[in-house]
Design a protein around this nucleic acid. Structure first.
Lengths: 234, 234
DNA sequence: GTCTATAAAGCGAGCGCTCGCTCGTAAAAT
DNA sequence: ATTTTACGAGCGAGCGCTCGCTTTATAGAC
């Protein structure tokens, strides 16, 4: 019943295979942190977790996670202080619930690019997938990016690892394309390093692109055109 | 005496004309916030401000500005709580001292690209200048970038404005180059938007590039090569 | 259906602590 | 002698977190 209802696969898009609804993501959290969550009935826990995380993202993205007090969160969720602490044993655990979900989903969505595609197509798959994923889980990614900088070692490590993973995936495709003669790249690592911040810009400066009325599709298309020209895609 | 000692201009580099030493930057702060600083003797004020800002950047870049307590700062600077409050009237003012200095220096260093240079050279001037400036004032820029996200309206506005300014400068050069037939650019605004995060990556992810032993010069060169290929510089 | 025993979930005042900030006083400089 | 600077204990407020208690949901007996 708390199982994420399967979404019919649409094409090959990395996000189409996954259920990224708030409830499904809350169910993931319950699965990963079930041992520290004191609430026993799964459907209750999932429902409350969804609300807790939703409010956490909203509040933290407005004033910062550190500045968000648990009393604020209590007011926003409608749950008492005591009730909140039935779902996590410390504020840091709440932080890890969000960060863990993000890196888990990143791995599932982008971790295995379709090997049958030629490198140029695979690069497009990766770029479009990254934009689509961060668009679908926008508050999660802005949270992870903004908060992970100055926070406890464990949380920080999680964020850094996830980021390196994506850059590694990009580098792999670039290397394959270079070997196959599809790309002209002097330094694969450096090129991947330059690509990453442009991908991140989509969610880090989301408000800017909203103001300029740039759609997700338009962004990934512009980005691909820019990168394609830079690495001499034929 | 507190006047920044002039540095002999080296070539045309935007940073060469400016004194970016800690003392000179502290003198700027004194000039801008002289009315709220209760210490009267300029040389004392400048000296202490330099120490205060230096420690603030070190502490805040480690644990975040919000998490840095003024007791921490007191211990680190060797000044008492009371003494600290002779140099700023609130923690937010301390924040604005740093952010204000950054945007002031950005404007002076990059605000007037040499019009006599042809657009491709002017773009190189901007890119190299941005990298050199952020390298020279690394802790200031990481501070501004990381802290300005989730902070009081005034501070936030300052950071956003400064960022838009730089992007605008880039867009201007790109537009000039497109008009002159130097560049092939479909959407100037979008291209400038894509360039900015790559420039910022240099200081936002500085530790990554340090680990990979990438020098400032190597970065701006790689970036220019990438961008040059992308916008069809001839 | 109604009653009732037990478990599950929620409540919120209060604990110990740290925060930004103040102010009466001491030390240093002139 | 007077001004300038530095000191640091102390203030009220707000923090993360706890715990004794109440309310709500559930299940078996009749």
């Amino acid at each position: 019943m708390t199982q994420p209802k399967p979404v019919p696969p649409r094409g090959d898009a990395p996000t189409a295979r996954l259920d990224l609804s708030l409830e499904a993501l809350a169910a993931r959290i319950l699965a990963r942190h079930g041992d520290t969550i004191r609430v026993k009935k799964a459907h209750v826990a999932t429902q409350r977790l969804a609300r807790i995380v939703d409010c956490t993202l909203a509040l933290a993205n407005r004033v910062g996670f550190h500045s968000m007090s648990l009393r604020d969160l209590s007011k926003e969720t409608g749950l008492s202080m005591g009730a909140l602490y039935a779902y996590f044993d410390s504020k840091e655990t709440l932080l890890l619930m969000v960060l863990g979900t993000v890196s888990e989903v990143v791995e599932e969505a982008l971790g295995h690019p379709p090997a049958e595609l030629p490198p140029p197509e695979r690069l497009r798959w990766l770029v479009a997938g990254h934009v689509a994923l961060t668009e679908a889980m926008l508050p999660w990614f802005t949270f992870a990016y903004m908060q992970a900088k100055s926070f406890p070692p464990e949380a920080r490590a999680l964020a850094v690892a996830s980021e390196q993973r994506t850059e590694g995936l990009i580098a792999q495709v670039l290397a394959d394309g270079k070997a196959a003669g599809d790309f002209e790249i002097a330094d694969v690592e450096m090129t991947a390093a330059l690509l990453k911040p442009m991908l991140q810009d989509w969610y880090v400066k989301r408000s800017k692109y909203r103001r300029r009325k740039v759609s997700p599709g338009a962004y990934s298309q512009a980005l691909m055109a820019f990168v394609g020209a830079a690495i001499g895609k034929r």
